[in-house]
Amino acid sequence: MGELKLSKPYLLQASDLTTEDVKLIFDKSDYFLKHYKRGEKFDDLKGVTVAMVFFEPSTRTKLSFDIAAKRLSADTISFQSATSSLTKGESLIDTLHTIEAMGVQMYVVRHGKSGVPQFLQENTSGVILNAGDGKHAHPTQALLDSYTLYRHFGDVKGLKVCIVGDIIHSRVARSNIALLKTLGAEVTLCAPGTLLPRNRNIWDCPIIESLDDAVEWADVMLVLRLQRERMDSGILPSITEFSKYYGVKYEHFTRKPELVLMHPGPVNFGIELDYRLSTYPNCLIQTQVTHGVFIRMALLSLLGRDL
């Protein structure tokens, strides 16, 4: 595998990845999954410093990247916008250059504004990995979701995946749509009208109006988090109505036991998802988290090996 490389030397969005890239990443993840032993480390990133540059709160993505980097023997540093000089008025570019001057080669970036990883990549010689930018992209989440499906079903091609919930504000939805389509899955969307794009066909994903029909159709329900702050903007009449018509219930799954459930987390149980589903056998939420580490190890290894 020494000669194999991703087609781009960074990861900004899911559409940066070709099917060959994804195969490479999945193979590498398989390798790490198979060979990782507690207490042992791989030396793929020995001598490389990875900065976790998070301008937005995150638990799982940040921890997952941090563990992945450490398992590859990288040095990691962490940056939190709330405690940084940004609060003193330092610009984003300045912050980047400051971290760069300390000898960092890779940057795992999360930011509340869309396009920031691309903006930073254009202004650094280091490698940017997008850990979520605004409403734009969250490519590693999409990779770990597809990887989870690949491990569960053996192939993503031809799978019927319905994405449910707050599509319009979701970077997870955007990246999953792009990646799942690259891998040949069929994707549909199910959401209230104010949580869908105005141009309904921009992603070429059919809209399924009722959740019951969606469950009927799908092999996989990918449920999105509903951010409570959406209520304040008046975009939904009430959480109760949302939950009643777009919340995924236990009954949906007792009706169709083979149906697979995924959610990028953190889950609002009782709003978009019935709490009883957390222990349902085909609920892959914890598997997604576990796979996330191996996917990120694979990406860090593939993007960091020549640094």
Partner: peptide
């Protein structure tokens, strides 16, 4: 502009 691209770019 509010068009297909705005949704794709998350803007």
């Amino acid at each position: 502009n509010d068009g297909a691209l705005a949704y794709k770019l998350g803007l």
